[in-house]
């Protein structure tokens, strides 16, 4: 998994997520689950660690389930107070929860096995056709990678400024919403000033090292497809065919629109 070309991983993840949205039937989801489990095993990332990755979206999951469970019309199963639970609701929410979990796991899997640098490189490559439409692909990719480099630095900086203002008696917890919002001004302004200063310095440093846009650049780590990637693409095609077959014919259900 770790050694696959980042382009392969992006395409893989993209097709996988697409498959979750196009079809909605138990067989497809079973295949999708199987596919994901195999991927996780191949990646050698501890399952527990993957499950932990779901934590941040747990609230969203619960909320979606609750809404769909309680507010989907259809055949009534049972009801209490003002809520009615229907068979359709159960179906709908279990699809949704499956879809969300698969989606989060698949994208986590991609980011966990790939360095951000390679991801931006791969995106730059995959988006190249967009150049025809005058999209500045190289610049976008460069922006992404600089952003990735500077986010931790700026988070650190924000933390420092916040503490410095607290040392001057600033209070970020009390008061009403207006007061609270106002209390962030002494953080936001220095943070902006610092971000601009850094941006300026960085631009100079890049210029000093002969940065001149994307034209004529070579790469330390050019993207190269290996045998593993071919295997992965073949598997992907098999998966796609399987899903389409099952989605369209096995249950004779029309594909649900995006």
């Amino acid at each position: 998994m770790h050694r696959l070309d980042p382009r392969t991983k992006i395409v893989l993840t993209f097709v996988y997520i697409l498959s979750l949205f196009i079809f909605e039937n138990p067989a497809v989801y079973a295949v999708a689950a199987l596919f994901l489990i195999i991927e996780i095993i191949l990646s050698r990332i501890p399952i527990l660690y993957m499950v932990k990755g779901l934590k941040p979206v747990a609230f969203l999951l619960a909320f979606t389930v609750a809404v769909n469970l309680l507010f989907t019309g259809g055949q009534e199963l049972f009801s209490f107070w003002i809520f009615t639970v229907t068979i359709e609701g159960i179906k709908r929410s279990s699809y949704l929860i499956g879809r969300l979990i698969f989606l989060v796991l698949a994208s986590n899997l991609m980011t966990l096995t790939t360095a951000p640098v390679s991801l931006t490189n791969a995106l730059e490559y995959l988006m190249r056709p967009l150049k025809l439409f005058k999209v500045p692909v190289h610049e976008v990719a460069m922006m992404m990678s600089i952003a990735l480099r500077f986010i931790p630095i700026l988070v650190d900086e924000a933390n420092k400024i916040m503490k410095a203002q607290m040392a001057r008696g600033a209070d970020f917890d009390s008061g009403n919403i207006i007061k609270k919002t106002k209390s962030f001004v002494p953080i936001i302004i220095p943070l902006f000033v610092s971000a601009f200063r850094r941006a300026n310095n960085l631009a100079q440093a890049m210029e000093a090292r002969c940065y001149n846009g994307g034209e004529g650049r070579t790469r330390l780590n050019p993207l190269k497809y290996r045998r593993g990637d071919v295997v992965a693409y073949v598997l992907l095609v098999i998966y796609a065919v399987l899903i389409v077959l099952m989605g369209c014919f096995l249950f004779k259900a029309p594909p649900v629109a995006l």
């Binding site: 420092k160 040392a167 008696g169 001004v185």
Partner: peptide
């Protein structure tokens, strides 16, 4: 909060925390 007024801490590169429109307003903060 009161303590921080009694035990004043000047961070490294403290000029990075300046934010107000004037020096005077900043010092009043």
């Amino acid at each position: 909060k009161k303590l921080r007024g009694k035990v004043g801490l000047v961070f490294q590169y403290p000029e990075h925390q300046l934010f107000a429109e004037t020096v005077f307003a900043d010092v009043c903060f």
